[in-house]
Design a protein around this nucleic acid. Structure first.
Length: 963
RNA sequence: GCGGGGGUUUCCGAGACUGGUCAAAGGAGCAAGGCUUAGGACCUUGUCGCGUAGGCGUUCGUGGGUUCAAGUCCCACCCCCCGCACCA
């Protein structure tokens, strides 16, 4: 059992020694450039990486065997926040995190403390993972390896960004983000302790007037200003007076803090309890009405401005709060609100909506059964009203110039109008609390002067779509997702203030973010071999150098002079780039479709001419562990390394690739891996028997012709599937289907062996080599071959070797076997003797003529064929029996159902001499069925046929009688 | 909510674009038999129901429809998974 993994190391060494995966430019050979998105160096590779990479490697090996000069390079992603963040957590002594590193990543204690240096950590995992990649037997050219903070690579990224900038693809902008004041950086979803999926929302602050102050009441529904009856404030919360951009405002303390992060000048001048303003009056913007300020508990001072206005007709909370207050005499006296003020307040209906009457708020409250303003059901009622009114609501006559319009159509116009007249302002806030991993609460910050990749640009989008249609996408169903992503993408902030990476060349405060520095880096592989071999220092890699290499722009002599890179090396780099580019195949997990892979298209479209756009893009599912998502926190995380140690490289690769294809999620299970391992071992044992066997037969018969023939189909199937990255189908056919062919052959053949079988094993092994390369090298060697199977010729199918007669012959034997077994099963008796009856000649004539006719007529119908066949028989025989007519009618019925290519095939096969074939297979059938067999043709003299079975004989379907 | 992908026989999955060879490939599991000192090895058979003749009946999320014929085409509905951005 352990024999297989043992020779894995042996072959890996042999490959390395012979340097067979080091790919150099060779103009005489066609190249093929495959890539795998480099992994992030903050942890060990896991079996999910293994799955995707195994697909890429299988494809690379397949193409290499097809004779292409294949380049499969590898690199490491160091850019970004994550590695730095991980170091932070170690520094802080995060116990869970350290435990995971010790137990899952198996980091030795002696190394762990060094991880407080992020660079060391990245180095550690790079080293670790490189070992894993080699142990997997991936066919990598390591001379081109790099990581994304390598100075030479940074130079390359700088060149890329200067180029994008000058072409207008990078712009400056302002944007709200979820922000951690402590970390002083945006807090992405995965950086959050709490509040996943929460993003900033834009409120409108309606500027009510109170004395010489503004009282900004927050709302999502500014159109409801026409129905305002009062203002709500929380009497117990802290409010402040502040100078906001030169105006005097009253707002919650929390809001003042928030606004100061949103491009506003704020100075707080005094602070007081909300109760101070209760009972006072404020004036509405737009409509200049005086409304009272009233107390309400549902008002959250930590949300937006901490002040809201009340529209009881359309807002369930307002309706409930009003009812609550009208009943609450205690509060009325406490805050000195005269009864008549409350009595005067009448809901004002301003929106007409199908399905609602005068007061939608009240209706919704009744519908959900909300009791008061603190009832959680009030939220439900609010959503109900909002949604309906937004989509179907029309503003009534009391809405000024907006009357008669739908809410949906005037909403944004109204906001713009209000802001223009200084009746409103906008403000961002979070609908739910967000807490950073550092345990500090987050706020919304409006980042100014950020750098964006302008993915919103229509022209760029169109170019990206062109690049997409220029490439083959596998599986095809992923195309839709790409198109949707291209349409959906907005401007992408491409730089951050912290983390590892390359600074923006024209604004060094900013570091290019991880997804943005990894879009065209495959081009860097093509030249990095020379940069490393020639030890070219990064300063020499100037913009001019890259321009010359990638665009052939500028004067080589001059560039050689200024950069100090020799003319010859420059030439060599340019040649190598133009030789290897474009990327022929890039494959990743589907989660990268909406980001990395689409960015990859955008940037290639922006920076390179069409001839350098990618040719094939592949996507695959996300790996599951025993049907569940794999994660370190769930404790079901399987590292690539541990899988290799347990099952070996070949079994790991095969188990993964057999598990899924297309965008279906593959599943990793111990059973699956163990199973793959024992299957491979069986294959090895079988191969030993065959390759060590003595060949008593040199000449080949029908059975050998059959084996060779079906193998041609297998070759086609495996080849076609691999071309389309259908790795599962390919492996299934290369492994199970051919195995079944061999089983049948050996079962039919008995003990004797044939040279053809050994040749067939050679083909089989080569078809399997991209998936289980180590084992196949071993088998290949045992078969007496000298070179590496990794470099052997991929089998080509030969239509000349397809033998329909041989194939149908075996089909006949199989069907006799199956039918007889079925009869035995149904009758529950064991026959002493089996009689087989081949169809009489005239039946064959009718059958073949029927086939021929069906192929000459466009859409063969029962009637036409019948007529013609009967005429034919009349001409030949003069008269026809009733039985013949019935037979003809049945045969035609069957023929019509047979697909066209099968009909062609059967016509090519022609008349099968079933007696001869079955006679040859007689001993086999007798052995299998444990019965004497006797074979005759229908219509011959003296045929033993006591139950009249012979007349049931049809072409390809002899009659059977069990006695 | 928006966008993308799916629901097939015990399980995983092929088939669906191009309707008939489909009770539906292949693998796994399970059962029986063989081979074996033994086997998580290998070989054979069976694995929707019925059946003393190779057959018949009922199935491919649900409900309709088109057709001589539907897992495959059309319509409606139900359910599941994934993505939704300052970040890998």
């Amino acid at each position: 059992m352990k024999a297989l993994p043992q020779f894995e190391a042996k072959w890996q060494k042999a490959w390395e020694k012979a340097r067979i995966f080091e790919a150099d430019r060779d103009e005489k050979r066609k190249k093929f450039f495959v890539t795998f998105p480099y992994s992030y160096a903050n942890g060990p590779l896991h079996v999910g990486h293994a799955f995707t990479a195994a697909r890429v490697d299988a494809f690379a090996r397949f193409k290499r065997m097809q004779g292409f000069n294949v380049l499969f390079p590898w690199a490491w992603h160091w850019t970004g926040q994550t590695i730095a963040g991980a170091s932070e957590r170690i520094k802080a002594g995060d116990p869970d995190f350290i435990k995971a590193l010790r137990e899952i990543d198996r980091v030795p204690a002696t190394e762990l403390h060094k991880f407080i240096d992020p660079e060391y950590m990245a180095q550690y995992y790079t080293r670790e993972n490189r070992t894993t990649v080699n142990a997997a037997g991936f066919s990598i050219d390591w001379r081109r390896e790099f990581n994304t903070t390598t100075p030479a690579f940074s130079q390359f990224v700088e060149w890329q960004y200067r180029e994008l900038h000058s072409k207008g693809y990078v712009t400056k902008g302002t944007h709200p983000v979820v922000w951690c004041p402590h970390c002083r950086s945006p807090t992405g979803d995965h950086d959050r302790q709490e509040g996943e999926g929460v993003s900033p929302e834009e409120y409108v602050l309606m500027k009510f007037r109170y004395n010489d102050h503004y009282l900004p009441a927050a709302t999502f529904r500014p159109e409801t200003i026409f129905g305002v009856t009062n203002i709500w404030m929380n009497p117990d919360a802290e409010y402040v007076e502040a100078e906001v951009d030169g105006e005097k405002w009253v707002l919650s303390k929390a809001a003042a803090d928030k606004l100061s992060e949103q491009k506003h000048d704020i100075e707080v001048t005094s602070s007081f309890q909300g109760s101070k303003l209760i009972g006072k009056e404020a004036t509405t913007p737009l409509t200049d009405k005086n409304v009272p300020i009233l107390p309400a508990r549902f008002v959250d001072a930590h949300s937006a401005s901490g002040i809201v206005y009340s529209v009881p007709a359309h807002a369930p909370f307002d309706w409930l709060a009003l009812k609550d207050l009208q009943k609450d005499t205690e509060s009325q006296t406490k805050y000195g609100i005269p009864k008549n003020v409350l009595e005067k307040i009448q809901p004002i209906s301003i929106i007409r909506t199908e399905g609602f009457d005068e007061y939608p708020a009240a209706e919704a409250i009744a519908q959900v059964g909300a009791k008061d303003q603190c009832d959680p059901k009030a939220e439900k009622a609010t959503k109900l009203v909002y949604k309906k009114e937004f989509h179907k609501g029309v503003l009534k006559e009391n809405c000024g110039k907006y009357a008669g319009k739908t809410v949906q159509e005037i909403k944004s116009i109204l906001i713009k109008d209000l802001v223009d007249t200084n009746d409103a302002e906008t403000m961002y806030d979070l609908p739910e609390p967000v807490v950073c991993r550092c345990l500090n609460p987050c706020i919304v910050k409006v980042l100014e002067e950020q750098w964006f990749l302008k993915y919103s640009d229509e022209a760029w989008k169109n170019k990206a779509k062109e690049a997409l249609s220029n490439a083959a996408v596998y599986p095809e169903s992923a195309t839709q997702w790409f198109l949707a992503t291209i349409d959906w993408l907005q401007d992408w902030p491409c730089a951050r203030r912290s983390g590892l990476g390359t600074p923006l060349p024209w604004d060094m405060e900013w570091i290019i973010e991880t997804l943005s520095d990894s879009t065209i880096y495959m081009a860097f592989y093509t030249i990095n071999k020379h940069i490393k071999e020639q030890k070219i220092s990064s300063e020499r890699l100037t913009v001019d150098v890259f321009n010359w290499i990638f665009y052939n722009k500028g004067d080589r002599d001059e560039i050689a002079e200024t950069s100090g890179i020799s003319k010859a090396v420059l030439r060599e780099m340019q040649d190598e780039f133009t030789y290897w580019y474009p990327v022929d195949m890039r494959n990743s997990a589907k989660e990268l479709i909406p980001n990395h892979l689409t960015f990859f298209l955008f940037h290639h479209a922006a920076l390179f001419p069409r001839i350098h756009w990618p040719k094939i893009i592949g996507a695959n599912g996300m790996l599951m562990k025993e049907k569940k998502k794999m994660s370190k926190s769930k404790g079901n995380f399987v590292t690539f390394r541990s899988a290799l140690e347990q099952y070996g490289a070949d079994a790991t690769r095969c188990a993964l690739l057999l598990s899924a294809e297309g965008m279906d999620d593959p599943d990793w299970s111990n059973d699956g891996a163990r199973d793959a391992m024992s299957k491979l071992e069986s294959f090895y044992n079988l191969s030993q028997t065959i390759s060590e066997g003595k060949f008593t037969e040199e000449t080949s018969g029908q059975l050998e012709a059959w084996l060779v023939s079906v193998l041609q189909h297998r070759i086609n199937r495996v080849t076609d599937s691999l071309e389309k990255l259908k790795t599962r189908t390919a492996l299934e056919n290369a492994f199970f289907a051919i195995w079944n062919d061999f089983r049948w052959y050996m079962r039919r053949k008995g003990r004797s062996q044939n040279r053809v079988q050994k040749e067939a094993l050679g083909i089989w092994t080569r078809l399997l080599a991209p998936f289980a390369p180590h084992l196949c090298e071993e088998v290949w060697r045992n078969l007496g071959n000298d070179g590496f199977i990794s470099l052997a010729d991929w089998p080509k199918s030969d239509t000349g070797k397809v033998d329909p007669v041989a194939e149908e012959g075996e089909t006949l034997v199989k069907s006799i076997l199956e039918d007889s077994l079925s009869i035995i099963q149904a009758t529950k008796t064991k026959p002493k003797e089996i009689y087989l009856y081949g169809a009489v000649d005239w039946k064959w004539d009718v059958f073949l003529e029927g086939l021929r006719l069906s192929l000459t007529i466009e859409e063969p119908s029962q009637k036409d064929l019948m007529k013609q066949l009967i005429q034919l028989m009349e001409r030949q025989k003069g008269e026809i029996t009733k039985g013949a007519v019935r037979f003809t009618s049945n045969v035609i019925n069957e023929i019509i159902r047979i697909p066209k290519d099968r009909r062609e095939w059967l016509l090519r096969v022609g008349k099968v001499d079933e007696c001869v074939i079955l006679e040859k297979a007689k001993r086999f059938l007798e052995r299998e069925l444990a019965s004497k067999i006797s074979i005759r043709n229908e219509g011959e003299a003296d045929v033993y046929d006591p139950k009249n079975r012979a007349k049931f004989a049809k072409p390809h379907r002899p009659g059977i009688y069990h006695e």
